[in-house]
Design a binder for these strands. Structure first.
Lengths: 201, 201
DNA sequence: TCTAATTTCGAAGATTCGTTCGGTTTTTCG
DNA sequence: CGAAAAACCGAACGAATCTTCGAAATTAGA
């Protein structure tokens, strides 16, 4: 997973990874604003303060950045989602927790999320894109299972559960396109609103 | 609006416009599959059967295609939406008609719609992108006004009307990413499902 | 302090891409 | 038919791109 020349000295690993993560975050911002293919490496060198050679010390190539952005977005979200569904809480409560964590994550990592949703074709032409797809599918399955348990115990009602899942995915994935930091609604309020819309059928 | 060399003979205008529209549709398919920046003009010449020079008989440049795709998508949809809200029907009925027409349009023009939603940054760096933005805003305002009228006469209830509008936009805009021609649900069923989700708060 | 590891530099190279333009073929219609 | 318009061709150009590589500068740790 790490780039071409990760340091062998253990003490330097942390600094290296932190710097790499900075580079990835800078790339996420640029890619979200201008698009992946339209962002040149020279724009990235300018934004990071590194020269071309220095940049390639932390990444394998431009492709690598796309996968890194998705990984940094999906891995912690998926971990949190697994924590929540491991709980004994009833399905409705689990769903509220899931959507709250999800929306908060999406808002906090707007740039990563915008790259993830807007650059689908660019991601799909990378070598390691199946890993990203697997993580996305895993998260969607966790959601679906919670909806299914809620439907089974009668605490949720859906005209078509699959459509409700897709609607929820659409809502949340669209959120980073309109949220503004310090906007009228907090992430928690947005999440609560989405839950009410989906659950009150 | 037309490309560099539109025919002066009136009888040929129709054929010219039809061929141009074919080119735009072919471009929409390629852009939707591979992304705008990642699609080369030589791929487009191969897909259209035209050579480079012949292609530029119908378009001003690669940029032009992006705007043309959005225009062909939004113009008829906006016209239909204006027809619907000019009706005397109650807000709930108007909303159902709007969403039905919208979803049907989005499914019928999946490729155009995928380009419109996925290539936002590419569109925004074009000269004529404000026209596209205005059409999108106009459609969203029509939707918002219908929701507002429904809320005013008590036929609809929203915890937060703005959030319900954004949720609806998210659902429908996400639809082309998962619909398959001949899938389990018809566009009409999808639209009805979305309306139920949004209205039953 | 000294050395080996790490970080950074930046010009050069190879490739790809969008567009142009002079000319040719096909079609229209008087 | 025949002349003007329309449609089309495809090689070539200039610009922009990502990545490489050898060397220099900096830093860590003994």
């Amino acid at each position: 997973m790490p780039a071409p020349a990760p340091p062998t000295r253990p003490a330097l690993r942390a600094r290296y990874e932190a710097r790499r993560s900075e580079v990835v975050a800078t790339a996420a911002k640029l890619f979200a604003e201008r698009g992946y293919d339209a962002t040149s490496m020279s724009e990235l060198t300018e934004a990071t303060g590194l020269a071309a050679g220095g940049l390639y010390h932390y990444i394998e190539g431009k492709d690598d950045l796309l996968i890194a952005i998705c990984d940094e977005l999906l891995e912690p979200l998926l971990a949190r989602a697994r924590e929540i569904v491991a709980t004994e809480a009833p399905p409705v409560e689990q769903l509220r927790e899931l959507v709250a964590a999800w929306v908060a994550h999406v808002v906090a990592h707007r740039h990563h999320m915008l790259v993830f949703t807007q650059e689908r074709q660019a991601i799909e032409r990378q070598r390691r894109w199946r890993h990203v797809r697997a993580q996305r599918k895993a998260f969607e399955q966790i959601l679906d299972e919670v909806l299914a348990r809620g439907e089974a115990d009668g605490s949720m009602t859906f005209a078509d559960r699959r459509l409700s899942l897709l609607a929820l995915l659409g809502m949340v994935n669209y959120t980073p396109q309109w949220v503004r930091p310090g906007g009228r609604l907090s992430p928690a309020e947005i999440a609560a609103g989405y839950c009410e819309i989906v659950l009150s059928s």
